[in-house]
Design a binder for these strands. Sequence first.
DNA 1: ACTGAAGTTCCATAATGTGGAACTCCCCCG
DNA 2: CGGGGGAGTTCCACATTATGGAACTTCAGT
Lengths: 254, 254
Amino acid sequence: MSGENETRNPAGTQAVDRAARLLVRVVEADAPQPFTALHTGSGLPKSTASRLLSALERHGLLQRDHEGAFLPGPVLARHAARSGGAGLAATARPYLERIGEKTGETVNLAVPSGGAVEQIAQVDSSYLLGATDWVGLRVPLHCSALGKVFLAHGAAELPRGPLERRTPRTVTDRGELGGELAGIRRRGYGAAREELEPGLVAVAAPVRGGDGTVVAALSVSGPSVRLTPERVTEIGELLAGEAAALSEVLGAPR
Amino acid sequence: MSGENETRNPAGTQAVDRAARLLVRVVEADAPQPFTALHTGSGLPKSTASRLLSALERHGLLQRDHEGAFLPGPVLARHAARSGGAGLAATARPYLERIGEKTGETVNLAVPSGGAVEQIAQVDSSYLLGATDWVGLRVPLHCSALGKVFLAHGAAELPRGPLERRTPRTVTDRGELGGELAGIRRRGYGAAREELEPGLVAVAAPVRGGDGTVVAALSVSGPSVRLTPERVTEIGELLAGEAAALSEVLGAPR
DNA sequence: ACTGAAGTTCCATAATGTGGAACTCCCCCG
DNA sequence: CGGGGGAGTTCCACATTATGGAACTTCAGT
């Protein structure tokens, strides 16, 4: 018992406690931590620290930079990207702006979050009538274009319980919804026509990350008088293309 | 040896390997994971899984929701907030724009990063004379308003070694700086007058996250001919109020 | 009220994790 | 240019821990 401040922990967790403290030390550090800093800072013998750090590295929780210093690993980087969305929004900004120029409609970027859709970036419509500011807004999965895209590609799962009927057109039957999701996978984009709010139409397409999974989605939305079925098809194909280009930038496999 | 896919790992890391796998399983899950899902999914006996999960929880790597299901803990949430600042930037955008309208000056959002200040969002000044584009720019902690706010609230620590004198007015004495930080905590905002660059004045206020810690800061900056001491006080109080409002949105305790 | 499942705690015992020593590698100084 | 010293890795005898089945508590559902 020679590590940092090792008062008695519950039985049978000394090794995990030590590894956890090393991990926290790296995650909370402002800069990559060399091995020496970690074993001296933790008070652990070099061989113990080395063994524990290698185990954390093996699971993707830590990684080493070119100088051998430890920093948070890919598992935590992906978690940060998903829950933070920051770099993603910055990277996506030019795509949102280009889609906005081409369509004139409101463009949003969203991520799946806790059984719902969370909007993380927006470019406003050039019309007087269009979406209000949705950044930070969370909407249900089943009755939004973005949400349907996440469901279709396994990036989110429907919560238990009955599906909320937001408008007379909201699909609340899980089987019927499931059928729609198959079409979304086939076309590469999804739509919701007056299911979230009367008069509101939206189209969305999936954005993939480096591991090929769907990490976000782009959407275009506007009033039904402008977003006719023909226009939805047009915009859907444009969105699918832009989302694919953004995916490549994020390192998604072709 | 009964856990998931346990081929031979390097000697002496079985417990850490098991705990790491549980942690990764939770971090990569789309929803909080109940205990049953984790022990069955991992193949570990209930008592083993329970002991390991409790250890991870104890170190802040995992936490339990009100139903007892596991999700990433505060350590990882803070890491995500810090490294994935874009969701934050998106959420903060309306605040930056309002402050910009009220003051006419450049408004920035920044996070502490690696012993410095990193600008992650900006609203430009309405004057012809104002800050250039600082997004992505890193500045030292000791001679910027943003940096002083981070130091005052424990969100960053000064690097070792002498403090760089950027202008004749830069405070490089650690004791003198420490005295200023106490005042910043008291007033709720900090300032830097011609310490980073001649003619440049800035005011900053802390933004808190869900756990009450300072995760970012808002600043207003401009030339000293406009940002007189009286004006700095005015803007400081405005900033403190807007930053507090943003903190509430981010879930900071009152 | 009862049953069964989720989750927690105990503790005898088997198996692992430890940490000092020895080692490699490489940078820096004289 | 050579040697010293520090960073980091690997080995393995042995002391100590981690294991997991059993027993338990709690609570939701019938």
